[in-house]
Design a protein around this nucleic acid. Structure first.
Lengths: 184, 184
DNA sequence: CTATGTGAATTTATTCACAGCA
DNA sequence: TGCTGTGAATAAATTCACATAG
């Protein structure tokens, strides 16, 4: 909306877009303070800034990718990170044939260099390695100071409480569909 | 647990595993009926069957993949579908260089053949095409009788009410991490 | 003695309705 | 007049506590 030159948006606009009710939008915002203008709506720039702050997206974050196979390559090519002010700042693999190769704007590094992440102030990582190596990779990442992990392996990963893991299990997401599909 | 030869599991076991409370497990199950044995717990085979039924996972489902790029290839190689009794039964691409090529156990078909899905009784699809073609692909899938779509493009897809779409936005999932990470 | 299943109590979330500001 | 922000009312989910079954 901001890119389209719009200046303000009402709770009703937002509600329609998201498929919820207007009062729900207002009530939710109100828990974090009052940042709208009665009779007008919410200033779009200001609202975006507030929401980013609430979601802790107000500092630009760098993420490392571990595993540059098919899935990892797809992550590197993913066009959607910019909108959240994220960037993939490093890519690692353990395959000697890949190490040193360029992939987009990044050079693939040896997985044994993961410990440099702390020095480079990279605190997020994406795990796109085979299931067998997922837990090992996670352990190494935690030692390297990583505090948030996005895990694409279909397995449970154990980490210290200070670290947050979000696992994306493609099969499980596919399996959610039938529940919402009408019979026949 | 079943594969490990265990026969029964208590609400407390399950709760520990999932990180919730035992009464929550029992209450949730109770909404769908009573299928435990007091003093013993839940029969594992029976429970799995019940849960699959509740989640509409009791019939084996076939899914089609559209877009065999990096992400699509990763989906084909994904080892986790079996546990939900799912299989990828067809793969499509619009790139002439890919059509006809084998990819694992599947031969890549021309996207213009998507309409054969109805005849082949495939009612689920995974969209792994570039963002620009996502809506078009979805429209074609809906015409071909598909009722559930797993969308990997970072964009909103509009479909008739009878069709369920689940969108996985990798960037958004990554962006969820900072909220749960302690400061510094 | 152990573990389920469920009413009742409690807590939390949603919805309403409207006062008040631009 | 249009839209926000919020107390109050309603609805829903969670937690407790215990009767009951193996």
């Amino acid at each position: 909306m901001s890119e389209e030159g719009r200046k303000s948006v009402s709770s009703h606009n937002l509600a329609d877009f998201l498929g919820v009710n207007a009062w729900q939008i207002r009530k939710d915002f109100s828990y974090f303070g009052a940042f709208g203008t009665p009779g007008v709506g919410y200033n779009i720039e200001k609202l975006a800034k507030q929401v980013k702050k609430i979601l802790k997206l107000d500092v630009i974050k760098k993420a490392a990718l571990v595993g540059v196979g098919n899935l990892g390559s797809a992550v590197l090519a993913y066009p959607g990170f910019g909108i959240y002010d994220f960037s993939i700042a490093a890519a690692f693999d353990s395959d000697p044939k890949k190490i040193g190769r360029k992939k987009g704007y990044l050079t693939i590094e040896d997985s044994s260099k993961l410990r440099t992440l702390k020095r480079r102030r990279i605190s997020l990582a994406i795990i796109a390695v085979p299931r067998e190596s997922a837990q090992n990779t996670a352990d190494t990442l935690v030692k390297a100071g990583v505090r948030g992990i996005l895990n694409f392996s279909p397995c449970h990963i154990t980490v210290p409480k200070k670290v947050k893991v979000i696992t994306i299990d493609i099969a499980m997401d596919l399996a959610r569909l039938p529940y919402y599909m009408p019979a026949n």
